[in-house]
Design a protein around this nucleic acid. Structure first.
Length: 1051
RNA sequence: GGGCCUUUAGCUCAGCUGGUUAGAGCGCGCCUCUGAUAAGGGCGAGGUCUCAGGUUCGACUCCUGAAAGGCCCA
């Protein structure tokens, strides 16, 4: 016996009970124990930070991460799935700062780094319970008990080992560079962090005059969107080869003025205003022209305020003359080095003007922009001020606009490995593929050195110590090495600030004090180091590390292209000259139902729990797999998931419930010793099923989740709405013969196979089916579907021809229904005959072979093929462009025309007899083959037909008295069944039936008494007045009146 | 400004290496079927396949350009 199943499905409580089952039997760990010693399939978990609640996008990533480890486990691999937590970095610090109400680094230092970092350590796991709950509920099997944590000493020590390796190979260096800098966080950002924070910004747009010293009345005209950098101006750059002009214009204030700018930009700057060009010159002729400085807050110790030349100057916007502030721009800095210009640092580390810049001292630079502009206006130096909207980088965490700012910082020489990183990328399979040479490939090809240093508190300290006196530097690669330097055992030392900062020793060169440099490292380096650091390699676990490197599979969203995907790749390339991962699925972003990005500020964030509690985790997972290709951004809403439940989950569930109900009624059990006598329908379903297994397997081998799931939907639809519908009678009939057993065996095989095919994607439903279908009858079977083997397919069962034939039969059945509809003949009314036309000779036997099936489906007494001399139709020819076009190319239109000009009747007859026809075009004869022309049929007047392409169904709609009586009998049966249902009888209950009917109906009932009694499980059928107190019904149909009542007969 | 992606029915998506009548599901209207079904079947309304050029006997599909949206980078 199978456990009885209700067609009503309470999905949420079902899933919860399966969670308990997995927990009780520790199935997850059992899947690992079972595969101990088998080949490894390596998966890396990209560590999330648990200081925020998990959202739908995390469910997306986790759903996709989960598929392949489960699948590979079923294929026999040992798949360690170690979780991980990213715990360091600014996001954590910012949360703690908020909690403490801090805004500046000074406040943190006053509070104490030790106490601050303790809070960070706790904060990193604020929502860990939420993460654990959600992870478990969506059945993402990952080992959180042994998860690696980036803040542990072991993890940090491994990171230090990597850095020491780089140090010894001279891959770490300190540079003074203009970097994107967050004044609020007080630290430079790496390029991939900058990449996270671009947004639309509206900045001032100001045109400023710089009067020339030696040519009174002439001014250089510059343009900038950052007025705050003007006090640091030391030069103006022109392009040597660009044409510049001196123009003369009227001014409201003082009559005439002359301005110098690029000729190409005159129109853009002055528009329709009439200006007169009074001179023209190349940029190089401007070189050395001196101008009056705009501001003189800081002294200049070198020559400044003259025109320099630079190739970076463009004429795409502005004036073609670029103002240079070396402290605040990369190009400005390189020009300053080239021309030995002074560098004016007018801004402090918090992004405010220093005291020397008197009018705006202490003011955040961006807030000073309007005042600076006003100051220039008052002094007559401002030509025009407006606004300019462009994309500008903001801090990815705190949204403060970044400043480009000259800072000393540490770098990794990744650019030296550019070619190797590009070459290794060749070995990685990217899904979708375009990322490989697109976004990721371009990023690698334009690689610049990795800015590693962070001037912050909570993170992996950069293990470089420097002598305060002679600047001798040493890099430390392990705790043991540090102990040795310090001369004491430091194995218990917390490797964070401020504790590591307190370790000092005597400089071996000069006897000064070695102190750690102040920087931490970029947290992306932490995550990219996980292949090594999760095992505390090379200090221990060497075997484990080697077995678990590189990863076969990783999966994250596209925003990790320059994040984790890059940090893994860069570190692995530099350290081992090897890829860190072989296959990677790169997921698109999640949008709301309107296609808008989900964000807290828009208030359109969907809480994954709302979806899970409504429709269950499986339906949510399934939606994510099937809705669109994984790399594409996708819309998401609770309603879309609910549709999955209705159309897919419930269809499958009801098929399953049907099977269990009838199998139990018949006491059917799978019997491996019996070879079922399959019907054509059974063979078709099995053929389709085995083809499905092949397709899903191939898809998963190629990391194609969509290709492994959508075909299952199609199959379930065919299973339920064709196989089962057509087989209902076989299950329903009372004798238990070979035909019935074959039907059970077929349906059983399909359901069990489905449970396995669904195991990686719908782990709950798969388990529910498996437990009842397999475990309840076979105690030897693996305890869980997730411990079972992935199904194999039998090529000999796959019969492509049978699949094509059945597709044709379905199509003809559909046309038959359409013809009935047009003729206004409901299906319950039997008709004498249905005749079909098909497009070519090969399809004719198919109709004959499936005549019984079609007759039953369409409720007709006879099925036949319309013959070529048929009564119902006229023929037309449809030359097939695919075949003929490819064969005859440009002659195709003429040949087509010639075919259409033929007399269709004889031509069609030849073609349907598989004979060629001939046409003449321009004196040449062409032989046209039967497969090159489709024969179409058209209805003649007065027949009930429906057609599509070459296919046609025609019905004989004349009714004989017998047919009418049979129709009445079926109407009667229908009413009785309805009443049985209303009376809440069991499917197998026998009944006594009372009826009263008008004469026409009464005669029909008498004629079809046996049929009726068999259909309705009636043991006694009494034409009597209805007894009181029994379930009863009355109805009028087809002009007849009927009263019925029934009672159950106790057995 | 550059790179990548997307644009097909009201919605979510198919449409294979070009083939002449562009499909499915959901939703809507009408009809129908049912002792597994929360369903199924049929018919209908709903499409300038974002736009403009080009290649071709033939373009949703290939090429060029443009537009809108998204992501990424300057």
């Amino acid at each position: 016996m199978f456990r009885p199943v209700s067609p009503k499905l309470d999905i949420v409580s079902l899933e919860e009970s399966i969670l308990r089952f997995w927990k009780t039997h520790d199935i997850f760990h059992e899947t690992l124990r079972q595969r101990e010693g088998q080949p490894e399939y390596v998966f890396y978990e990209g560590p999330p930070t648990a200081n925020g609640k998990p959202g739908v996008h995390h469910v997306l990533a986790r759903a996709f991460k989960d598929v392949f480890p489960r699948y590979k486990t079923m294929r026999g691999y040992h798949v360690i799935r170690r979780g991980g937590w990213d715990t360091h970095g600014l996001p954590v610090e910012i949360e703690v700062e908020k909690q403490l109400g801090f805004n500046t680094k000074r406040e943190i230092e006053a509070y104490g780094i030790a106490r601050f970092n303790e809070l960070c350590r706790k904060s990193a796991f604020t929502y860990i319970r939420e993460w654990e709950k959600l992870t478990e509920r969506i059945a993402y099997w990952v080992d959180l008990d042994t998860a690696y944590i980036t803040y542990t000493n072991d993890y940090i020590e491994s990171v230090w080992w990597i850095l020491k390796n780089f140090w010894e190979r001279n891959l770490l260096y300190q540079g003074f560079k203009v970097v994107p800098y967050c004044p609020r966080c007080g630290t430079p950002l790496s390029d991939h962090e900058v990449a996270l924070g671009y947004d639309e910004a509206t900045d001032p747009s100001v045109y400023v005059r710089l009067p020339l010293v030696d040519e009174p009345g002439n001014s250089l005209l510059i343009w900038t969107t950052t007025p705050w950098t003007l006090p640091a101006n030391v030069a103006v750059a022109a392009h040597p080869d660009v044409d510049y002009v001196v123009i003369e214009r009227e001014t409201p204030e003082n009559g005439k003025e002359r301005l110098i700018l690029a000729e190409a930009l005159v129109q853009a700057v002055f528009g329709d205003e009439p200006v007169k060009v009074v001179a023209r010159m190349k940029g190089r002729q401007l070189k050395g022209k001196r101008y009056h400085p705009l501001f003189t807050f800081l002294p200049v110790d070198k020559p400044a305020h003259y025109v320099v030349l630079g190739d970076f100057v463009t004429t795409e916007e502005g004036t073609g003359l670029v103002h240079m502030a070396p402290a605040f721009g990369a190009e400005d800095m390189s020009a300053a080095l080239e021309y030995d210009l002074p560098i004016l640092m007018t801004v402090n580390e918090e992004g405010a003007f220093i005291p020397e810049v008197r009018p705006w001292a202490g003011k955040f630079v961006k807030e000073a922009d309007p005042e600076i502009t006003e100051d220039l206006r008052r002094r007559g130096l401002l030509l025009r001020a407006g606004t300019y909207t462009h994309t500008y980088p903001f801090c990815w965490r705190c949204s403060t606009p970044l400043l480009y700012y000259a800072r000393p910082t540490w770098y990794i020489r990744t650019s030296q490995f550019k070619e190797q990183m590009v070459a290794l990328n060749e070995k990685i399979n990217w899904y979708p593929e375009h990322i490989k040479y697109g976004r990721f490939g371009n990023w690698l090809a334009n690689n610049i050195d990795w800015a590693l240093g962070r001037e912050r508190y909570w993170g992996t300290p950069l293990p470089i110590w420097e002598c305060q006196q002679c600047h001798h530097q040493e890099c430390i690669g392990s705790v043991a090495e540090l102990s040795q330097k310090a001369g004491r055992d430091l194995s218990g030392l917390d490797l964070h600030r401020p504790h590591v900062d307190e370790i000092r020793w005597k400089c071996p060169e000069c006897g000064g004090t070695m102190e750690r440099v102040p920087e931490l490292i970029d947290v992306w380096f932490d995550s990219g180091a996980m292949p090594v650091a999760q095992w505390h390699y090379p200090f221990e676990n060497e075997k484990m590390f080697k077995r678990q490197f590189p990863a076969d599979y990783i999966c994250e969203a596209v925003d990790q292209t320059r994040g984790w995907f890059y940090s893994l790749h860069a570190i692995s390339t530099l350290l081992f000259g090897e890829v860190a991962y072989k296959n990677v699925i790169c997921l698109g972003l999640i949008l709301d139902a309107q296609g808008q990005k989900m964000s807290k500020s828009r208030g359109n964030v969907v809480d994954p729990w709302d979806v899970i509690n409504r429709t269950g985790a499986d339906a949510m997972r399934w939606y994510l797999y099937t809705a669109s290709p994984p790399g594409q951004e996708r819309r998401f809403s609770s309603d879309l998931v609910a549709e999955v439940l209705r159309s897919f989950v419930l269809t499958l569930w009801n098929t399953y419930a049907f099977f269990v109900t009838y199998a139990n009624l018949d006491g059917w059990q799978p019997n491996p010793d019996e070879t079922p006598e399959y019907t054509a329908l059974d063979r078709w379903l099995r053929s389709t099923l085995h083809a499905l297994v092949r397709e899903a397997t191939d898809a998963l081998e190629h990391y194609d989740v969509l290709g492994a799931t959508r075909p299952i939907e199609t199959f379930v639809d065919q299973l339920s709405n064709w196989y089962l519908r057509r087989s209902r009678r076989r299950f329903w009939k009372s004798e238990s013969d070979a035909d019935k057993r074959a039907a059970y065996a077929t349906l059983y095989e399909a359901l069990v196979t489905l449970s396995k095919l669904l195991a990686p994607t719908m782990p709950f439903l798969a388990e529910a089916l498996y437990q009842n279908l397999v475990r309840s009858v076979d105690k030897e079977a693996p305890l869980s579907v997730h411990l079972a083997e992935w199904p194999s397919y039998d090529v000999s069962v796959i019969d492509e021809r049978l699949n094509r034939e059945m597709a044709l039969v379905m199509r003809l059945a559909s046309l038959g229904h359409a013809a009935r509809n047009k003729a206004n003949r409901k299906v319950r009314q039997p008709l004498a005959e249905a005749a079909f036309a098909v497009g070519n000779a090969e399809e004719i036997p198919v109709v004959e072979a499936y005549a019984d099936l079609l007759a039953d489906e369409l409720n007709v007494k006879r099925v036949r093929v319309l013959d070529a001399t048929s009564e119902a139709v006229a023929y037309s020819l449809n030359p097939l462009p695919k075949q003929l076009g490819q064969k005859y190319a440009s002659r195709f239109p003429a040949i087509r025309k010639a075919i259409l000009a033929l007399d269709p009747e004889p031509a069609a007859k030849r073609l349907l007899n598989n004979q060629p026809i001939e046409v003449n075009v321009d004196g040449e004869t062409y032989t046209i083959l039967p497969e090159e022309v489709e024969v179409r049929v058209q209805a003649r007047e007065g027949f009930a037909v429906a057609s599509e392409g070459p296919y046609l169904a025609a019905l004989v709609t004349d009714l004989t008295p017998e047919l009418i009586q049979e129709g009445l009998a079926r109407e009667f049966v229908r009413r009785v069944q309805e009443l049985r249902k209303q009376a809440d009888l069991d499917i197998a209950d026998r009944i006594r039936l009372y009826y009263q009917a008008t004469p026409g109906l009464e005669a029909a009932l008498a004629a079809f008494k046996d049929y009726i009694m068999g259909e309705t499980l009636t043991l006694e059928m009494l034409n009597q007045p209805l007894p009181a107190n029994l379930p009863a019904a009355e109805d009028t149909f087809d002009g007849e009146r009927l009263q019925i009542a029934l009672e159950r007969i106790q057995r």
